[in-house]
Nucleic acid binder design. Structure first.
Lengths: 117, 117
DNA sequence: CTCATTAGTATCATTTAGTATACTATACCA
DNA sequence: TGGTATAGTATACTAAATGATACTAATGAG
C-alpha cells in the first residue's frame, strides 16, 4: 500500500530513465554478460550504432554510475568499459524485461494467428 | 547462457517499448493499484497530462493488450479503462523498477553529499 | 612518407515525442 | 436558451533523440 504516484515522484521513471535509449539495454546486457569491453569491441557488438551514439550512451551511463570508464595512456587509444557494482543492481530488472519480452513474442504471434487464421 | 543480443532481437526492448513514454508508468501503476478508472478520473490522477497525451498513451497501451477499454453508450460519454490480465504480467517489472528507483534516490543523495560535503 | 588504428568530436539533417490550444457531439439542468 | 459535463479530435508547434558524414591526434608498420 502506498506507492508514490504523483507523477513528479514516480520512482519507476528513475530506472526507466537509465534504461531507455535505443541502445542502452543491449549495451548493458553485453557488459553484464561478457564483462569489460573496449569501445571498439562494443561498437562491433552493436552493429548499426554510430560512434556518436555509442559515445553518448556510454557517457550517460557513466554519468549515472552504471558503468565505469577506464582510459589507458596509449596510442592508439584504449578505453575500457565495465558494469559498476551499482550497475549490476539493474540486472534483475533487465532479466525480468528480457523474460517478459520473450513471452511477449509468443503473445504477438498468437494475436497474428487469431487475426489471419 | 545465451541471451539473444543482436540489437534487432533484444527482448528487453519489447517490455521497454511498452513502458516508456512520459506518462505510461504512472498510468499503469494507477490502474494496477486502484483498478478500473474512467478517462476523466485518470486525467485527474495524472495532473499536467493533456487530453491528447492521455488518449495517445491509452490507445498505445490498448493496442498492446495491456489495458482494456470499455465504452458505455451514454451521454455524457463514459469510458472505463482497466489492466488486462496480460497487462498485470508487467507488475513485477514495474515493482522492481519502483524499488530500484527508491534505492536510486538514496544513491543520488549520497553522491550529492560527497560532492558538496 | 603514407597508411591503418583507436576513441573520439563537430556539424547538420531528420525523426519522434511531447505541449498548447481550440474544437466537437449530445443530453441534462436551470 | 444557455451552461455544464465527458471523451475525445484537429492543428500547429517546440524540444529531444537519433542518424549521416566528415574530421582529428598520435604512433608504429611498411
Amino acid at each position: 500500500m502506498g506507492i508514490e504516484m504523483q507523477p513528479e515522484l514516480c520512482k519507476v521513471d528513475d530506472a526507466l530513465g537509465i534504461l531507455v535509449g535505443k541502445w542502452k539495454p543491449i549495451i548493458l546486457l553485453i557488459l553484464l554478460q561478457e564483462g569489460t569491453k573496449r569501445f571498439s569491441d562494443l561498437k562491433r557488438s552493436v552493429p548499426g550504432i554510430t560512434q556518436k551514439m555509442l559515445t553518448k550512451q556510454l557517457r550517460e551511463l557513466e554519468e549515472e554510475d552504471i558503468i565505469t570508464r577506464n582510459v589507458y595512456a596509449q596510442v592508439p587509444p584504449k578505453v575500457e568499459y565495465s558494469m559498476s557494482e551499482y550497475g549490476r543492481s539493474l540486472e534483475p530488472i533487465l532479466m525480468a524485461m528480457h523474460e517478459w519480452g520473450t513471452a511477449h513474442t509468443l503473445h504477438k504471434t498468437k494475436k497474428v494467428q487469431q487475426q489471419t487464421g
